[in-house]
Design a protein around this nucleic acid. Structure first.
Length: 343
DNA sequence: TTCAACCTGTTCCGCCTCCG
DNA sequence: CGGAGGCGGAACAGGTTGAA
């Protein structure tokens, strides 16, 4: 059954031109005279015409839409990145289709299928990484995609990625705390199948070893990276009587949750311990807790991802995959002002 | 169960007109 | 006569629907 929506056919009937001419006039094609274009555009406006982009995509094979698939859009880090991506894509007349996976590989597989079924032209994805099954599926679909924030170690030849220098980030953060006299640094890390978690851990170890300290695996605790699940890890740490004077957190969000959970056990920052997060979300949001953090420019990360994807979309040549590694920076704030040698 | 028709907009190709 | 501009015809994309 036909709905009441105005189509090219209606405009063609009203103006006396064919559907073809109407379509091209509305696209402002220069093989249609300016006078005809203006007339058709005027009638289309009067009739309230809104193009059917799905029909257009069906024929042209391009929807001018990019899917952005992320693990947890409630994390401000991702929210900032999404905003930058959306702005960048809009500048090039692409719309953005955001899908959240909750860091669940099954949701991720469904998200990819949904994006493909909507005929998106490309995908920017922060992969869940529990396996490389979804990566393989993406590669086999032959659709341009860019990994953001994480990469598949050993498979950089088949996927383009934009990441932060996580190894250096882990090292910088740990060296900062060591420099403040801390020797017992608790690392609330993400699951190790995530590239950023394994590389930050490598940086953490490297800093300890360079300082002549032994790596103690009891000081590394795995925290689920979806927001709101850090408290029980802190409860365990307190229960196990783990001695620490400083904390390195996998993300700022985990750092905030840890600070909250520790407060319930009577620990106050910065009075009782120093803490360093990751992502530097305070570069864009104002929080009442000045958190020392490792960051790389989220704007640069998003722009590079968008540009790499657009290059792939606009190029007829096979994609040359590359890994872009952005420099990690330490931003010192009051949360790490506690020094061990000050007591 | 099969298959044609349909939906809507785009693209390729070609025709007609006009002008120099 | 030839080239350029302006426009139209037909094919087509892939999923859905309904008739045979």
């Amino acid at each position: 059954m036909r709905n009441s929506r105005v189509t090219l056919k209606d405009i063609a009937a009203k103006t006396g031109y064919t559907i073809n001419t109407v379509s091209r006039a509305l696209k402002n094609k220069d093989d249609i005279s300016l006078q005809t274009r203006q007339k058709i555009q005027e009638v289309a406006k009067e009739m309230g015409y809104i193009g059917d982009s799905i029909a257009g995509a069906l024929r042209s094979g391009h929807s001018k839409t990019v899917a952005v698939i992320l693990g947890d859009i409630s994390n401000p880090h991702f929210a900032i990145i999404v905003r930058e991506i959306e702005t960048g894509l809009r500048r090039h007349h692409y719309s953005t289709f955001i899908i959240n996976t909750d860091e669940n590989p099954e949701n991720e597989a469904e998200a990819i299928r949904l994006a493909l079924s909507r005929m998106v032209d490309g995908i920017i994805i922060c992969p869940t990484q529990q396996s490389d099954e979804n990566l393989t599926f993406l590669i086999n679909q032959n659709i341009p995609f860019v990994l953001i924030g994480r990469h598949f170690i050993g498979r950089d030849d088949c996927a383009t990625s934009v990441v932060c220098d996580d190894f250096m980030g882990g090292r910088l953060a740990t060296e900062h705390l060591l420099g403040l006299g801390h020797r017992n640094i608790l690392f609330l890390n993400g699951p190790l199948f995530i590239s950023s978690a394994s590389e930050r851990l490598a940086g953490y170890k490297e800093a300890l070893i360079s300082a002549g300290l032994a790596f103690d695996e009891r000081m590394v605790r795995e925290v689920p990276i979806v927001a709101g699940d850090c408290k029980h890890v802190i409860d365990e740490v307190v229960q196990d009587k783990i001695q620490f004077t400083a904390i390195l957190a996998f993300s700022d969000l985990i750092a905030y949750e840890a600070m909250y959970a520790l407060q319930l056990h009577g620990f106050q920052n910065p009075r009782d311990y120093a803490i360093v997060g990751f992502d530097n979300i305070q570069s864009k949001f104002l929080f009442p807790f000045p958190l020392t953090s490792i960051g790389s420019s989220k704007t640069t990360m998003a722009r590079r991802a968008v540009n790499l994807l657009l290059e792939a979309l606009n190029s007829n040549k096979p994609i040359v995959h590359q890994e872009i590694v952005l420099k990690a920076r330490l931003i010192v704030r009051a949360s790490s002002s506690y020094r061990v040698d000050s007591i």
